[in-house]
Every structure is written in C-alpha cells, then in structure tokens.
Design a protein around this nucleic acid. Structure first.
Lengths: 338, 338
DNA sequence: TTGAAAGCGCTAACAA
DNA sequence: TTGTTAGCGCTTTCAA
C-alpha cells in the first residue's frame, strides 16, 4: 500500500511537502505540486483515513444508530427511508456512514458512548429508540454531537429533526370529524415513544375542541407492530360497537386494524373509517388504500444529516428542525352513517 | 479522552502492560490485570479503533457498496433486506459496517479500490451493480477480499452469494405451463444484470422443453423499475393479444405489469396470469396478491457477511453459496382459458 | 511478568 | 517554499 513516504521518495521531496501538496495548501510551488500529484497517481495512492483521523482527531464519519435493522422490521420502510436520506446528504458533504446495530444483545453490551468513542465518529444520528432507553441519557451526558430523529431533546450538542406530531394527529382526527364521525378510537404506538404522546395529545385536543366525549379505554397501544395492533383493534372494535372510526399512530398498525376489520366482518370504509400515519410504501398498495397523515421520511433523514454536519462544523444555527405533515385522503375514510 | 497512557500512569505500570492486560494476554499477572481493568473502568476508557487499525493493518470494518440507497429506490426492499442480513451477521462477529454510496456522482469520482483503501476496510460486500460496471473489474484486480451478491464471479479473494436464478425462472414458467399457458411473455430486468440473463435462460429452456415456440419480441426489459415495466408490459400485451401470461424478473416489475393490465382492462388472473420474482413485502399486499418466486433476501445478506468474514479470517472453504428459491402461489395466476 | 523503544501513516508546529 | 521533528494511540518485538 502506497504511503506519502513512498511518494516523497520518488518525487524527491519531504513527506511534509507531499502532505501539503495533496491537501491543497497554497504554500507549495505549483510545479512541485504537479510532480507530486503525478507520482501519487502513478503509485496509485490512497490516503489512509485511519492515520489521518488519528492525528486530526476526527474521522469524517457519522454513526447511525437505528433499532430497526432486524429481520422483523423489514416491512417498516421508515428506517430504510431515514437511512437513505441520511446517506444521501452525508455522502454529498464528504462524510461516510457507519452503522451501529442497537438491538442485538451483542451490541447492547456496549454503551452508546463506547460505540461512538471506539470508532471515533464525529457525531451520531439516532432513530427509533424509546424515551426510557438508557442510550438517551447517555446522549445528553456524553459530549458527542448528535441529532435525534423524532425525539425533541436538545442541548448545545444535541439537536433533533421531527414533525409536529400533535398537529399531524389533529389533521387526521379533524378529517374524521368533518366526515361526521363522533365515535373515534385510537390505536397508539407505545407510551414510551415521544411521537405517541404527541399524537395522543392531538387526538384528545381535537375531540375536546369539538365537544366530543373522551373515552379513555378507546385508546389502545399497538406497539407499532402490525400484529399487536391487529389484536388490539380487534378487541377494541368488538367490545365497542359504537366506534365508527380509528386513528392509528402508524401505517403498519393501520394495516393491522384493517385486518381486524376484515376478521370482524366490518367493511372499510363503509362501516369503519381508518386513518394511518407515516406514509410507508405499503400504505398506497393495501386494499383499500390507506388514508394517512404522511411525513417525508426521506427528508427527515436528509435534514438530520444536514443538521448534524452543521453542528460538527460549527455552522449550527438552530438545533431544531420541523418538517411538514400532510393529510392524504385515499380509500379508508368515508362519511359516517350515523 | 482516556488513553492507555493515562491508565498506565494511574495504575503505575507501562503502557505495554496495559495493552496486554486489556487484550487478554496470558503473560500478565492476574493482580495487575485486575488493577488495570479497574482503572480503565474508572477512567471510562474506550480503545481507539483508529489507532489500533493503523498499527494492526486491519479495521474490523466491512464496506457495504449498494447502489440502491437513493430516493427512488425506497420501494424496493431488496436492498434494505440484504443490508439487514449483512448487519446482523457482521455485528455478531464483531465487525462494523461502513456504507458506501455508489450512485451519487460525488462518490463516483472515487473508484471502488479508493473507497475501500481509504477507509481501510477489511473487505467489501457489493450489491446491485451491473455486469458492465467498472467497479466489477476493479474488484477482481484489487486485492481486497470481497463478496458479491447475485454476481457469480470468483477468484481467490472474491466469492459470491446467489440463488439459482435459472432454476427459479424455471419454477415460475413451469407453473404457468402447468396451468395450461402456452403464450407466455417475459418482462426481464436489464441485459446487463447477471440475474436477468439467468432468468431469461430459465424461461427459454422451459419453453423449449415443452415444445413451445419462442417469440423473441415477447421478451421486454423493464430495467427493474415499476414504471418502465408498466409501459413495456402495456405495449407488449396491447400488440400481442394472444399472450395470456407474463413472467416478470422482479416483483416491482410485476406490480408494474399489474398496472398495465388494469390500464388495458385485462383482468388478472382471469385473462392474464402474472408471476413475480423476489418476494418483496409489497408483493403480498397488492391486490390481487402476487404469485412469485421468492428468495430469502435477508438470508442472502446474512450469508454474504458470513462468507466474507470467513474469507477474512482465512477459514474460507467454499467461495460460492447458493440459496433456495420457492414458488409461492397467490392470486395472480390461474388456469388458461384457451 | 514487565518495560523500553520502534513504528503504523499522517498532520502541523517550527525552523530554515 | 521546503524540511525537521514531534506526536496522535496503539501493538509488538526485544531485552530485562
């Protein structure tokens, strides 16, 4: 493997000059630079980022911590879309991504800080962890720059990208109310997820605003999983026949609710209206197609990378970024027949 | 940031001893080791993998080159599933993953070898590149251990994981023939993809075996994209009304073909039977649900990582791994009415 | 069982 | 404009 030492020898200069020439410093004779560049090319030189990282104390890498990289999570494109967005922006700005798996027991032996420090990542992007995750406290305690996806926590080194989840939920429930629904249940995700709390807030506020009675047992938790949501929706609808519509805190869970309706013989949207949340690819392919509150997931990842790198390069201005949500009306909502 | 130097000072030993103690060498007094471990813990020490990588000449990282990490490709879970499998196996064996984006123009400035050499990855896994991709020749010329997904090329440092694509295609076409179809078209991917060539081979062989005339213009290329496939299938079916069934070289393209049938007012499977290939999540959610030849994509990624690490650690036995495919009959195929 | 010293490939003071 | 030198944090001979 060629090193700058080899180049120096062949070009007849010192390694310092080679380093300077290759890094575009101005204080090197243009002729010398050309010679060095030519030699480098001829010797097929690639800089060693490990060595560079060691001395510069930064690695030009971003750690991506995601919990959704397991066999089961393949359905949920959310994780993948975030990853695509992050990757796009990071690679454009000259950063590489290193993937940390946070859900295998193996990795769990290491703390967040250890993961980041060992690899000397310049910063991290975290997605898909819950409010009670020990990683979260670590994020705040460590002095590693970090951007959180959908968790509104900030410090001088920690920012976040999210959508206004309360508003998003409002859009969904408002839509149902406009269609004449008054008996609206909710399939929420997990009590430990920030987005769930916010979406619940939006749901409750909207009902209240319209003077609709709140029934606490009409809110169930589907753990963001299709199967759990199906079961929860099944029982909810079975035990409360007056419910005519369901607001689900994720598309995957809405898909589960759809299955529950099928099992119960309730037609969607004639008897039950369903609104999902996220805009995963599947939502447009189900039958009937899901009415949803959509977020630009790819963009979330993109912004997360952009914000993190701003922080890293001290150009950070605002540590919070909010993206828009949009109600997309498809086939699972209709007028209430009551 | 704590270093072994700090630990040495506090523990009152040399850095050599610290290094040996922490790395589990046997030639260090158990008492000394305990003391060192305690100090390390107290000082919150994390080893610097950059420094270690620099001196050991290996980084315990695997480079993952995928072309499918762009905004458009979000639908195609194939990439993501491979990634999940790779990640699972790699992290279990103590390797981290570094993601290289091969499709932004930015990254294209760098060659495959440069990418790998700069980051000093121990090996690479490549997925989603075409037969004419310059990266491919580089893979063989460079001396970087590498595992290819779905590209059967091998050398002493290059292996691959794939399925028997010819056999997979045979299963699909055989299924159609058994249903009485004799006018079978094919929506292939790209002439530059190995899998496409193999699947075409399987298609042709099966037709021949059953004495069915081969019509060359009944094979179109959908570029593995839904929209292109839709247009190609549309024209194919429109101009050749005798066609009663379509074998598509990917699920996404089968989805496109499904749309084409809708546009043409041909009902699936009554008038047209369709078979897809891959087993992406969407395939089970479309309406009607796709009959497909499925492959265990997650497993492909898993095996790729496993094989690569075997090669890296010189335990490599066989450089080729083949996984099974399986015909999954769902709703898009039915008996021919001819 | 331990330590001194060299060196992995690079950058950056500082001096010339 | 260039070179000398030190050092980033670690592993590893070699010697004690």
């Amino acid at each position: 493997m060629t090193t700058i030492k080899d180049i120096a020898k062949v070009a007849g200069v010192s390694i310092t000059t080679v380093s300077r020439a290759l890094n575009g410093y101005s204080d090197v004779n243009e002729k010398t630079r050309q010679k060095i560049i030519n030699v480098a090319k001829k010797l097929n030189y690639s800089p060693n980022t490990l060595a560079r990282g060691l001395v510069m104390q930064k690695s030009k890498t971003i750690g991506l911590l995601v919990s959704g990289i397991s066999r089961e999570s393949v359905k949920d494109n959310f994780t993948f879309e975030v990853l695509c967005g992050v990757n796009e922006r990071a690679s454009l700005l000259g950063y590489d991504l290193i993937l940390f798996n946070t859900n295998t027991t193996k990795q769990r032996e290491k703390t967040y800080t250890q993961l980041c420090k060992e690899r000397r990542v310049d910063g991290a992007i975290i997605q898909g962890i819950k409010k009670d995750d020990p990683y979260l406290t670590e994020v705040l305690e460590s002095n590693i720059p970090c951007v959180l996806v959908d968790i509104p926590i900030r410090s001088n080194l920690v920012g976040y990208v999210t959508t206004d989840n309360k508003l998003g939920a409002k859009k969904a429930v408002e839509h149902l109310v406009q269609l004449g629904h008054v008996h609206i249940g909710m399939v929420n995700g997990s009590e430990d997820a920030f987005v769930s709390q916010e979406r619940l807030r939006g749901y409750l506020d909207t009902l209240e605003k319209h003077g609709i009675d709140i029934r606490e047992n009409w809110v169930v938790n589907g753990e963001f999983e299709e199967a759990v949501a199906e079961q929860q929706a099944y029982e909810l609808l079975k035990n409360n026949e007056e419910i005519t519509s369901l607001f689900c805190a994720s598309d995957l869970m809405a898909l589960g609710a759809l299955k529950a309706c099928k099992r119960l013989g309730r037609s969607v949207p004639d008897q039950i209206s369903i609104v999902g949340y996220d805009n995963i690819v599947l939502a447009a392919y189900s039958s009937p197609q899901l009415t949803i509150v959509g977020q630009e997931v790819y963009q979330i990842g993109y912004e997360a990378a952009d914000l993190l790198i701003e922080i890293l390069e001290n150009r950070s201005t605002n540590m919070e970024r909010y993206l828009e949500t949009e109600l997309i009306i498809r086939e699972t909502t209709a007028k209430s027949h009551e």
